[in-house]
Structure formats: structure tokens, C-alpha cells
Amino acid sequence: MYLADETWPDLGAYFEDESLAIVPLGSTEQHGPHLPEGTDHIIAEGFATAAAERTGYLRTPTINIGVSPHHRQFHGTMWVEPPVFRDYVESFTRNLAYHGIDRVIFVNAHGGNVQHLREVGRRLRDDNVIYAIEWMWNDSIPELVEELFAQPGPHGGPKETSMIQHLQPELVHDDQLEAARDGGMTSFDPQSVQKHGSRTFYDAIDNTANGVLGDQTDASAAKGEQLFEAASDQLVDLCEWLAAQPFEALMPKDHV
């Protein structure tokens, strides 16, 4: 069920029976010369839509601009400052609580949002308002990602390329896959970009001239479909698990 497509009486019937909502979040930022700037929110919305259709749970509109200042040097990247993002998402989620939702899954496809969504979830839980958790698709199927790709990314790499080739292939510039690989950073190891144990870079461009990492030529729509189906199963299972939990069990424990 998609919230924006429903009438308010129909939504009232949902809120009487259910207490879970699925909130897709992503970003609008550069993803190299081959992928659209909407890559992250397209992926998040794809997963949220699939989970809502399979489970019947409510999906909200997508939050499609996130915390992306580390991509700001590239044309068209949009972002909001972290405190603004946190306050907006918290207000958005409290809005759901007002209507009777008491648990939310943030279906997130942008790494820059993760720590901020965790903080929002803690704020809401500490206030005993709502239980909100962040879900990231590739974190739900790490073994499959490693099996399919020698160099998956993490940004604009073959896993995201494969996903967009599956979800919206018309948006992928397939003729730019080699250029994306050759102009970016093919092999990424977090330790390789540290100095004496310190993460000394702040922006993507500090490590990759065209903004992407990984071997984009290793992508395919078939791999994207495989990833999408496997991660969708994980999200559906998470929805069902969360819906089955007593609300009291999700709230903070008492002081010892």
C-alpha cells in the first residue's frame, strides 16, 4: 500500500489494523558518468515498493535528498546538512506516530544517511514514541555481493550499476562503463586510503577523479535481479519480524 495513492478513510482503516510503515530514503548525488544522480533513491524506492506489495504494509513517499556533501564537487549533487536531515526525518517519523504507527523501517540506499538515521531512531525510541530502524540492502546479503563481484564498489560500482540495470535500464549509460572504471578507483580497501590509521580524506573526489569506485564493467541486469530478489526477501522477513514484536519489548529497558 502506497500512502499517497490512498484516500484518508482507507488509510484510517489501515491504521486501525496495522502499526508498521516502510520509509524509503536515498540521495540525489553523482554516481559517475554512467549512472543517474537518483541511483540511491531509485534503489530504495524499488525495495520499499516490493516489500509493501508483498506484505501489504504501508509505504510512504520517498525522501530523496540526503547527507551528500562529500559528493558536492560533482555537477548536480544535492544535499542537506546533517542536523537538518536528522530533524526532518525525525519530524516526518513523528508524523507517522501521530496517525498510529509505532514501528518504522527506514529502507535506506545511501551510506551517508546511516549514522544519522541511527541517531533519529535512538531519539524516537528514547522518547518511547516509535521504534525506527535502518535497513541497507547490500548489508542484508553481503555473501551474495562478494560472490558476484570481485570489486563491488562501494559507490557507483557494479553492484549499484547492476541494480539500476535491473530496475531502470534506460537510465544507465552502458557506453560509459569502461570510462567509469578507468577514470575512477577500481580497487577499494578502506585501509589503503588511511594514513597511520587515520581516515584523512573527506570527499569522494579525494580518492576518485570521476566519483566512483569498483569495476563497473562487471555489472549486469541479471546480477541486479539476483541481488534485488535476495535482498527483497530479507526486507520482507524483517517487516514480518518487526510487526510481530510487542511494542514494549522494542522500547528501552529499565535502569538496573
Rank of each mutant, 00 (worst) to 15 (best):
H31I: 04
H31D: 08
H31L: 03
H31N: 09
G32F: 11
G32Y: 05
L35I: 04
L35A: 04
L35E: 06
L35N: 06
P36M: 08
E37C: 10
E37D: 12
E37R: 14
G38Y: 11
T39I: 05
D40L: 10
D40A: 04
D40E: 12
H41W: 12
H41A: 00
I43D: 04
A44Y: 08
A44D: 07
E45R: 10
G46A: 12
G46K: 01
G46V: 05
A50Y: 13
A51Q: 01
A51W: 00
A51V: 14
E53S: 09
E53W: 05
E53N: 10
E53G: 11
R54I: 04
R54K: 11
T55K: 04
Y57G: 03
L58R: 01
L58S: 06
T60F: 06
P61E: 13
I63S: 00
I63G: 01
N64S: 15
N64H: 15
G66M: 04
V67H: 08
V67C: 14
S68F: 01
S68H: 03
P69I: 14
H70E: 13
H71P: 01
R72C: 15
Q73G: 15
F74K: 02
F74L: 03
H75P: 10
M78R: 09
M78I: 09
V80C: 13
V80G: 04
V80P: 01
E81D: 12
P82W: 07
P82F: 06
P83V: 09
P83N: 12
D87L: 06
D87Q: 12
Y88S: 10
V89K: 02
V89F: 05
E90Q: 15
E90T: 09
S91L: 13
S91Q: 14
S91M: 12
T93K: 05
L96I: 14
L96S: 09
A97P: 06
G100E: 07
G100Y: 10
I101M: 09
I101P: 02
R103E: 01
R103D: 05
R103W: 08
V104R: 01
I105H: 11
I105P: 00
F106S: 00
V107M: 14
V107A: 15
N108Q: 12
N108W: 08
A109V: 02
A109T: 01
H110F: 08
H110G: 04
G111N: 01
N113T: 03
V114G: 00
Q115D: 14
H116Q: 08
H116S: 10
H116L: 08
L117W: 00
R118F: 14
R118G: 15
E119F: 09
V120S: 04
V120F: 07
V120K: 02
G121M: 05
G121L: 08
R122H: 15
R122W: 15
R123D: 11
